[in-house]
């Protein structure tokens, strides 16, 4: 079943030029990365999915509900959006209080709200900091607070705008595991990203935006095999893919582990033949 359907979507901010020029997409539960240059229309697109903006022409159906016919607050239980800057939402003086705001807003029963809040905090690894003031935490930790505040509302669809900004490697690892876990639970994760290495290791499907259009939409491996098209969109394949290409392998590698395994296998085969 499609969780989101986008039909012939056009959008412009001030009737001058279209930011989005005719987008048709459907999303199932596969985790999906959206990549592309700044100004390609990625953030505008996810705001439309979330209902914060309404299509100029075309329709967006989220779980069968047309975003034009409902309010953002009513959609909140279905679809969550984590903004790029956690400072755009945090206003409580305790991490726990901040995260339980969303569940309460959407009318979740008290005990369930508490339960979901605790689970969300564990999921982002902040279980030990529930009583801290969010502004005493680092920027990267505040970002995790904002992710947890969306997870706590238990939406079927989670959108992340640049989740890896300012994260160190352990932070990225945590977010990667989290996205994979959500995908395995049947949830749809859509994320805007600039870090191609992170995309290749994490997402099942990748969509390339350029100049308000979808340039490529495929499984991540096929997308990163199209080096020339990527370059046109000012993107480079992940480092590991570049390494494989330089060494002349036809396989598009997405992780170091896969690359190492294949080469060791090749070595083994050759030594067996010898």
């Amino acid at each position: 079943m499609n969780l989101i359907e986008v039909r012939n979507l056009h959008f412009s901010y001030q009737n001058d030029h279209d930011v989005l020029k005719g987008i048709d997409l459907t999303f199932d539960h596969r985790s999906t990365a959206i990549i592309g240059q700044n100004g390609a229309g990625k953030t505008t697109f996810v705001k439309l999915l979330k209902g914060l903006l309404k299509p100029v022409t075309g329709d967006i159906l989220v779980n069968g509900i047309n975003t034009k016919e409902t309010s953002v607050a009513k959609l909140a239980a279905q679809i969550g959006l984590v903004f790029q800057n956690p400072g755009d939402q945090i206003f409580k003086s305790k991490v726990y209080d901040e995260i339980i705001v969303g569940p309460r807003n959407i009318g979740m029963p008290a005990d369930e709200a508490e339960n979901m809040t605790k689970r969300a905090l564990e999921a982002v690894g902040l279980g030990s900091k529930i009583n801290h003031n969010p502004y005493d935490l680092s920027f990267a930790e505040r970002k995790l607070v904002s992710i947890a505040s969306i997870l706590a509302m238990d939406p079927r669809i989670v959108i992340l705008d640049e989740p890896t900004i300012a994260q160190d490697d352990p932070g990225k690892q945590l977010i990667k595991d989290l996205i994979k876990k959500l995908e395995s639970e049947g949830k749809l994760v859509i994320s805007i990203l600039h870090d191609m290495d992170f995309v290749s290791e994490t997402f099942t499907r990748t969509i390339v935006f350029q100049h308000g259009r979808v340039m490529i939409d495929d499984d991540t491996k096929s997308v990163f095999s199209q080096t020339d098209v990527l370059r046109e969109a000012y993107l480079e394949p992940p480092h590991i893919t570049q390494l494989g290409n330089r060494l002349g392998y036809s396989e598009t590698y997405l992780t170091a582990e896969q690359f190492v395994n294949d080469l060791l296998m090749e070595k083994k085969l050759k030594s067996n033949i010898n």
Binding site: A77, G80, L81, F83, Q89, V101, S149
Partner: peptide
Amino acid sequence: TMKTISDAQRSRGLETE
């Protein structure tokens, strides 16, 4: 910034209207 913040809060189910 105000506009972005309003969007972020509405995204968490806050009714502003």
